[in-house]
Lab assay of single mutants.
Amino acid sequence: MDETGKELVLALYDYQEKSPREVTMKKGDILTLLNSTNKDSWKVEVKITVNGKTYERQGFVPAAYVKKL
């Protein structure tokens, strides 16, 4: 869990989004878990840094590609 009590997951593999509802992640990324009720895909939040500014983006990733921490 992070400092706000949200559950975290670790990306086990790289994943490139295939639709606007998904998010891209790299192996080793730590993501905030938002919903894990679907056995196939979990909703997560990723933090992306562009030019020194951090943005948050929500979307789905394959459940088999992440592990709860």
Rank of each mutant, 00 (worst) to 15 (best):
1 M>F: 12
2 D>M: 14
2 D>G: 14
2 D>P: 13
2 D>A: 13
2 D>H: 15
2 D>Y: 12
2 D>K: 14
2 D>S: 13
3 E>D: 13
3 E>C: 15
3 E>S: 14
3 E>T: 13
3 E>I: 13
4 T>P: 14
4 T>H: 14
4 T>E: 12
4 T>Q: 13
4 T>W: 11
5 G>S: 12
5 G>V: 13
5 G>F: 13
5 G>K: 14
5 G>H: 14
5 G>L: 12
6 K>T: 12
6 K>V: 14
6 K>I: 12
7 E>F: 10
7 E>G: 10
7 E>C: 15
7 E>H: 11
7 E>V: 14
7 E>I: 15
8 L>W: 14
8 L>A: 05
8 L>D: 02
8 L>Y: 15
8 L>E: 06
8 L>V: 07
9 V>F: 04
9 V>K: 00
9 V>R: 00
9 V>D: 00
10 L>W: 06
10 L>A: 04
10 L>T: 06
10 L>C: 13
10 L>P: 00
10 L>Y: 10
10 L>N: 02
11 A>H: 03
11 A>P: 01
11 A>Y: 04
11 A>G: 01
12 L>F: 03
12 L>D: 02
12 L>M: 08
12 L>H: 02
13 Y>D: 06
13 Y>I: 10
14 D>P: 04
15 Y>T: 01
15 Y>L: 02
16 Q>C: 12
16 Q>L: 12
16 Q>K: 12
16 Q>W: 11
16 Q>R: 09
16 Q>G: 06
17 E>G: 15
17 E>I: 05
17 E>N: 06
17 E>A: 15
17 E>Q: 12
17 E>W: 06
17 E>L: 06
17 E>M: 11
18 K>P: 04
18 K>N: 09
18 K>D: 06
18 K>S: 10
18 K>H: 07
18 K>T: 11
18 K>C: 11
19 S>Q: 07
19 S>M: 06
19 S>T: 11
19 S>R: 06
20 P>M: 08
20 P>D: 12
20 P>A: 11
20 P>S: 10
20 P>C: 11
20 P>N: 09
20 P>E: 11
21 R>M: 14
21 R>P: 04
21 R>S: 14
22 E>A: 06
22 E>G: 15
22 E>L: 03
22 E>T: 05
22 E>P: 06
22 E>W: 05
22 E>H: 04
23 V>L: 11
23 V>F: 10
23 V>A: 03
23 V>Q: 01
24 T>I: 03
25 M>K: 02
25 M>A: 02
25 M>L: 10
26 K>H: 10
26 K>L: 06
26 K>R: 12
26 K>S: 07
26 K>D: 01
26 K>G: 03
27 K>R: 10
27 K>E: 05
27 K>Y: 04
28 G>S: 02
28 G>N: 04
28 G>T: 02
29 D>A: 06
29 D>G: 03
29 D>C: 07
30 I>M: 04
30 I>D: 00
30 I>Q: 02
30 I>V: 10
30 I>R: 03
30 I>W: 05
30 I>E: 02
30 I>S: 02
31 L>C: 04
31 L>Y: 08
31 L>T: 01
31 L>V: 06
32 T>V: 15
32 T>A: 08
32 T>H: 08
32 T>L: 14
32 T>K: 12
32 T>I: 15
33 L>P: 00
33 L>C: 04
33 L>A: 00
33 L>Q: 01
33 L>N: 01
33 L>W: 02
34 L>N: 01
34 L>C: 05
34 L>M: 06
35 N>I: 07
35 N>P: 03
35 N>H: 06
35 N>Q: 09
36 S>H: 08
36 S>D: 15
36 S>R: 06
36 S>Q: 09
37 T>E: 14
37 T>K: 10
37 T>C: 14
37 T>A: 11
37 T>Y: 09
38 N>V: 05
38 N>E: 09
38 N>D: 14
38 N>I: 05
39 K>A: 12
39 K>H: 11
39 K>R: 11
40 D>G: 08
40 D>I: 11
40 D>H: 13
40 D>K: 11
41 S>D: 07
42 W>K: 00
42 W>H: 01
42 W>E: 00
42 W>R: 00
42 W>N: 00
42 W>Q: 00
43 K>E: 14
43 K>G: 04
43 K>W: 15
43 K>A: 08
43 K>M: 15
43 K>Q: 11
43 K>P: 00
44 V>Y: 01
44 V>W: 02
44 V>C: 02
44 V>N: 00
44 V>G: 00
44 V>H: 00
44 V>P: 00
44 V>E: 00
45 E>W: 05
45 E>H: 07
45 E>P: 00
45 E>A: 15
45 E>V: 14
45 E>S: 15
46 V>L: 12
46 V>D: 00
46 V>Y: 08
47 K>H: 10
47 K>Q: 11
48 I>E: 07
48 I>Y: 13
48 I>S: 06
48 I>N: 05
48 I>G: 05
48 I>W: 11
48 I>Q: 06
49 T>H: 10
49 T>Q: 10
49 T>P: 03
49 T>Y: 10
49 T>C: 15
49 T>D: 08
49 T>W: 09
49 T>L: 10
50 V>S: 08
50 V>A: 09
50 V>C: 11
50 V>K: 09
50 V>W: 07
50 V>D: 07
51 N>K: 08
51 N>E: 10
51 N>M: 09
51 N>S: 08
51 N>C: 12
51 N>L: 09
51 N>A: 10
51 N>R: 07
51 N>Q: 09
52 G>N: 07
52 G>I: 02
52 G>P: 00
52 G>E: 06
52 G>H: 05
52 G>C: 06
52 G>Q: 04
53 K>D: 09
53 K>A: 10
53 K>T: 12
53 K>I: 14
54 T>K: 07
54 T>N: 08
54 T>R: 07
54 T>D: 08
54 T>F: 08
54 T>H: 08
54 T>V: 14
55 Y>Q: 09
55 Y>T: 11
55 Y>R: 07
55 Y>M: 11
56 E>W: 15
56 E>A: 15
57 R>L: 09
57 R>M: 08
58 Q>C: 08
58 Q>M: 07
58 Q>V: 12
58 Q>W: 07
59 G>F: 08
59 G>E: 01
59 G>N: 00
59 G>T: 02
60 F>V: 05
60 F>K: 00
60 F>Q: 02
60 F>P: 00
60 F>R: 01
61 V>W: 01
61 V>G: 01
61 V>L: 03
61 V>S: 01
61 V>R: 00
62 P>Y: 06
62 P>M: 05
62 P>H: 03
62 P>I: 08
62 P>Q: 04
62 P>F: 10
62 P>D: 05
62 P>W: 06
63 A>H: 02
63 A>S: 14
63 A>I: 05
64 A>T: 09
64 A>E: 13
64 A>C: 15
64 A>N: 13
64 A>R: 13
65 Y>L: 15
65 Y>P: 03
65 Y>R: 05
65 Y>S: 12
65 Y>Q: 06
66 V>H: 01
66 V>E: 01
66 V>S: 00
66 V>I: 07
66 V>L: 15
66 V>R: 01
66 V>P: 02
66 V>W: 02
67 K>Y: 08
67 K>R: 12
67 K>F: 07
68 K>P: 08
68 K>L: 14
68 K>F: 09
69 L>E: 02
69 L>K: 00
69 L>S: 02
69 L>W: 06
